[in-house]
């Protein structure tokens, strides 16, 4: 049996308390690496459970305007996958919060899959989400990650069929990321019976925690999602708040934490 990862341990602990996981997303290096580091530590202080760090990429096809703009800023700041790994290594000396990288596949491929996995684990990364790498592609990636105890978190969507749910349920480790809508990050969410039904179904089939993301902005949305899911992921609106009104971010995070 493999060791329990920091992500699995966190989910177990929070669900045992009868609470749900709150997972904020920020783009590494936007507006600067120093700010990213400062905010990951803040998130930990403010009671967030897991932090998702975006790795900037030139062509983020699953992302909406907010995260695209953040990626452009980070790229202009010279932030690379290698740079994000050293940021995490620095953070690991200061915090025990679980850290997930959300990266498109090509930077990982160019880095070398095996190298990336080893360096990520070494730096203290707990899991990876690769939105353009469904479990059918590069099956070796998952095997290597498993061997090194790095969680690979796969996604499911409202369009997912029964056989896709089975495949992702099997492949995903740490938790399953359910995309709340057919669309890109930062779109407008509608919390429907269909969404709730899918989350229940995935939980039942997989027996793994299911976190929901894409389009969640208000504490009200977050609260309603948390009633069904095991975790709530908020990205675009945190990224926008950080860029436009950083002073308001602490209160926003507190309000989301309370709602989840």
């Amino acid at each position: 049996m493999e060791q329990k990862t920091r992500i699995s341990r966190r989910f177990e602990a929070i669900l045992r308390e009868g609470k749900k996981a709150f997972i904020p997303y920020i783009m590494a290096g936007c507006p600067s690496i120093e700010k990213t580091e400062e905010w990951v530590l803040n998130f930990s202080q403010l009671g967030c459970d897991i932090v998702e760090l975006g790795v900037p990429f030139s062509d983020p096809l699953a992302d909406g305007p907010a995260i695209q703009a953040a990626a452009d800023i980070a790229l202009k700041n010279g932030v690379t996958l290698r740079g994000v790994l050293s940021l995490v290594a620095g953070l690991r000396k200061k915090t025990d919060i679980a850290i997930i990288l959300m990266t498109y596949f090509n930077p990982v491929f160019k880095y070398g899959m095996e190298h990336f996995i080893l360096d990520a684990v070494q730096s203290g990364v707990d899991g990876v989400i690769v939105p353009d790498l469904p479990p059918d592609e590069e099956p070796g990636f998952r095997g290597l990650a498993l061997k090194n105890n790095l969680d690979t978190i796969y996604l499911l969507a409202p369009t997912s069929t029964e056989d896709r749910i089975q495949l992702v349920a099997e492949a995903s480790r740490g938790f399953i990321y359910y995309v709340s809508l057919t669309g890109i990050t930062g779109s407008t969410i509608t919390i429907s019976a269909e969404l709730k039904g899918m989350v229940e179904k995935i939980k039942r089939i997989s027996g793994k925690p299911v976190a929901v993301g894409f389009g969640i902005k208000s504490p009200e949305d977050a609260s309603e999602i948390a009633a069904h899911a095991d975790g709530v992921i908020v990205g675009s609106s945190i990224v926008s708040t950080m860029l436009n009104d950083e002073k308001a971010l602490t209160d926003y995070i507190i309000s989301l934490r309370k709602a989840i």
Partner: peptide
């Protein structure tokens, strides 16, 4: 080749 796309598009 392959299908390196978000899960949402796989069924389509």
């Amino acid at each position: 080749g392959g299908r390196y796309v978000p899960e949402t598009l796989i069924p389509a």
